[in-house]
């Protein structure tokens, strides 16, 4: 796969993404906040966040009084999964934007996550599996800790460690993570959890035993589950993007060269099933903005993954300055 091809695809898809701005920007009116968070991630990775300060501030404007966010901007009941995604985009965006309102918003979000964790370490959201939900505040706290945010640090460290333990304790002996109700195949959830747990291990300084081995087993499980055409989960575009991206950061951190072939095959499949503009949820389906954001994010991460700087792709998860 030629880098020129990737660069051109990124350019074309980013232009399409901008043309569709009214569909994801809070400056255009109420929005689905999961989609907004996907879009803000594209802005971060395209390094154009400073041109969109109004979008970040608009996300602060719809933060609920408890510090969380709702799935839709016009609602007021917070849920964990979307709150973690929004707060992660704000703390990472604020590294470029340096805005006091974002700093305060992130601190209110920290309060929200500390207040909503269950005694066994999990976070719960009726829209998502508990393991998947838990991985999101853990991921947010990874970045909070990695960036040196001083606010309530001992509380965060404790909550974060409990969250990681909950994740590691629920890994199956075959290396995958499963949820019989939401994710029986285990593909998407394993992709999410190996990246978050492994990075937690880097930042938490090996205080939870066995994380690297657990993540290596999880990655091996994903290798095993990849179809010959490069996709995962019966040609599921969303899950194939999840696996491809996750393996980029996990194999980089683990120093696992075997992953390159798997990642390249996954990316080639993703490019092959792309519509003239954007991606749908399965091959042949109409494009939607969320999947298009994921596709663009995958291309941007692949570009970083191919960089000579070994930390370039890790930066795309916000874990190193």
């Amino acid at each position: 796969m030629q880098q020129e091809q990737i660069t051109q695809l990124i350019r074309d898809e980013y232009a399409f993404f901008l043309r569709e701005r009214s569909g994801w920007s809070l400056t255009a009116g109420p929005q689905d906040l999961e989609l907004v968070a996907h879009a803000l991630r594209v802005l971060l990775h395209a390094r154009t966040a400073p041109d969109f300060l109004a979008d970040y501030l608009a996300l602060v404007d719809c933060q609920n009084t408890d510090g969380g966010w709702s799935p839709f901007s016009a609602e007021q009941e917070s849920t964990v999964w979307v709150s973690a995604f929004c707060s992660l985009m704000l703390i990472r965006g604020n590294r470029m934007l340096g805005h006091e309102r974002l700093t305060q918003s992130v601190r209110r979000a920290i309060d929200y996550f500390l207040a909503t964790q269950h005694p066994d370490g999990r976070w719960v959201d009726p829209r998502w599996a508990d393991l998947d939900t838990t991985s999101h505040p853990v991921s947010f706290f990874n970045v909070v800790m990695a960036l040196g945010e001083p606010y309530r640090r001992p509380d965060i460290q404790r909550a974060w460690e409990q969250g990681v333990r909950f994740i590691i304790d629920h890994q199956s002996s075959d290396g995958g993570w499963y949820d019989n109700e939401f994710h029986p195949s285990g593909v998407e959830i394993t992709a999410h959890l190996i990246q978050d747990a492994l990075i937690a291990d880097l930042v938490i300084e090996n205080r939870v035993r066995g994380i690297r081995d657990a993540c290596a087993k999880g990655a091996a499980k994903l290798y095993e589950l990849q179809a010959a055409d490069g996709s995962w989960d019966d040609e599921n575009v969303d899950h194939t993007m999840d696996c491809t991206r996750s393996l980029m950061v996990v194999t980089r951190v683990l120093g696992d060269d075997h992953g390159r072939e798997i990642i390249t095959r996954g990316l080639q499949w993703i490019i092959n099933v792309k519509n003239p503009q954007g991606w749908g949820d399965f091959p042949g389906m109409e494009s939607n903005l969320e999947r298009t954001c994921d596709g663009l994010d995958t291309l941007l991460k692949y570009q970083a993954y191919c960089s000579t700087d070994p930390l370039a792709v890790v930066r795309f998860w916000g874990y190193v300055p």
């Binding site: 829209r127 998502w128 599996a129 949820d179 109700e181 939401f182 994710h183 029986p184 998407e188 989960d233 019966d234 599921n236 969303d238 899950h239 949820d281 399965f282």
Partner: peptide, 11 residues
């Protein structure tokens, strides 16, 4: 007699 969504498992 249930159908589970292929994306995130809602039944």
């Amino acid at each position: 007699g249930g159908i589970k969504c292929p994306l995130h498992g809602w039944r």
